[in-house]
């Protein structure tokens, strides 16, 4: 739980993007459709238009602040509402102060520019209410709970990201894949996002995974996909747990990118009965400590199997085979 040495503003502070305009060479101004930024997902996807020549974009944003902030008897003075856009990967940080709009000081409006060259992947945007409290200027008295994401790569405004799946011939492909030429797939977790490489040189695997055939074909396909998913989740979990930031007292922090999401989704299966923060400490302790890491492997395998939906695929296959046999016997 948190405590602050000054009075903070209770209530919900929310932020929303009201319009986005792409700017580019020759004074191009291309407003995005509202469907390119989702208020539900809180994601802006400038890539959804398909145009790639934009250099910067201007967003109009509005923030809603509890009415108490501007009440005449409030303990806060010099109130400012600031939108901060940042991206950890590039260490970019832009802040813009909003100006009070309608609704008795509850609504604050402004605009924010984002330069494409300053960003790599996903920038986050949050709103902070800053005021002078007890004579100390510039204290944050409230902030939005959920960040907006400006996803420069996505084609749709969704928080969820799909891992990349690439079909490539391993025999003639990148150097590091050539050594894997006899396996049907390989997982690479070193990039921004994990990539699943499907070996095109492995005869028939592409068709099987991507195709639609007889009921037997489909059962085998679903089982295979479940197996691939299990492999992928096992690999990404190990990657995610392997590189954590640690606090002074040894508490590991959740990574901010996909690694954090993977951990949050899988840890409850790896270490049940514990809140995810404690589960992370526990797994980290076992991995870096002297004992316990080996004992944890079945749990990780279990979590990956569940995440890959193996039980569902397998029981469907068994049932399907059963009915085929019965049909053949009859």
């Amino acid at each position: 739980m948190r405590a602050f040495p000054y009075q903070r503003l209770p209530g919900v502070v929310s932020l929303r993007v009201t319009s986005v305009e792409l700017r580019g060479p020759d004074d191009i101004r291309d407003p995005l459709d509202t469907s390119a930024f989702s208020a539900i997902e809180q994601v802006v996807a400038p890539g959804s238009t398909g145009r790639d020549d934009w250099e910067w974009l201007r967003m109009k944003v509005s923030a809603t602040v509890p009415g108490r902030a501007t009440a005449p008897d409030s303990p806060w003075t010099d109130l400012a509402v600031v939108v901060v856009l940042s991206e950890g990967a590039t260490n970019t940080r832009i802040s813009t102060a909003l100006t009070p709009g309608a609704e008795n000081g509850r609504k604050w409006e402004g605009q924010l520019d984002l330069w494409r060259a300053d960003h790599l992947d996903r920038a986050t945007m949050s709103v902070h209410v800053v005021a002078t409290v007890d004579g100390v200027a510039g204290r944050e008295i409230a902030a939005s709970a959920k960040d907006w994401i400006i996803d420069l790569k996505a084609e749709a405004p969704l928080r969820e990201r799909e891992l990349e799946v690439v079909e490539v011939g391993f025999r003639e492909g990148p150097q590091w894949l050539r050594r894997f030429q006899e396996v049907p797939w390989a997982v690479d977790t070193s990039g921004d996002l994990p990539v699943v490489h499907i070996n095109k040189d492995f005869e028939g695997v592409s068709d099987l995974v991507g195709g639609n055939g007889t009921s037997v074909d489909n059962m085998v396909r679903d089982l295979l996909i479940a197996q691939m998913c299990t492999d992928v989740w096992t690999a990404v979990f190990h990657t995610a747990i392997g590189d954590l930031e640690i606090e002074d007292d040894g508490t590991p922090l959740f990574p901010r990118d996909w690694r954090g999401e993977v951990l949050r989704e899988m840890l409850p299966d790896v270490v049940p009965d514990l809140p995810v923060e404690d589960a992370l400490s526990e797994v980290h302790r076992r991995r870096t400590g002297t004992s316990g890491w080996t004992d944890l492997q079945p749990r990780i395998h279990y979590a990956a199997t569940r995440r890959g939906d193996v039980p569902k695929a397998l029981s469907a296959t068994i049932r399907g085979l059963d009915s085929i046999h019965r049909g053949a016997d009859a």
């Binding site: 990201r161 799909e162 891992l163 998913c229």
Partner: peptide, 8 residues
């Protein structure tokens, strides 16, 4: 396969 491999 891609549909099954999403995070967040």
């Amino acid at each position: 396969l891609r549909k099954r491999l999403s995070v967040g």
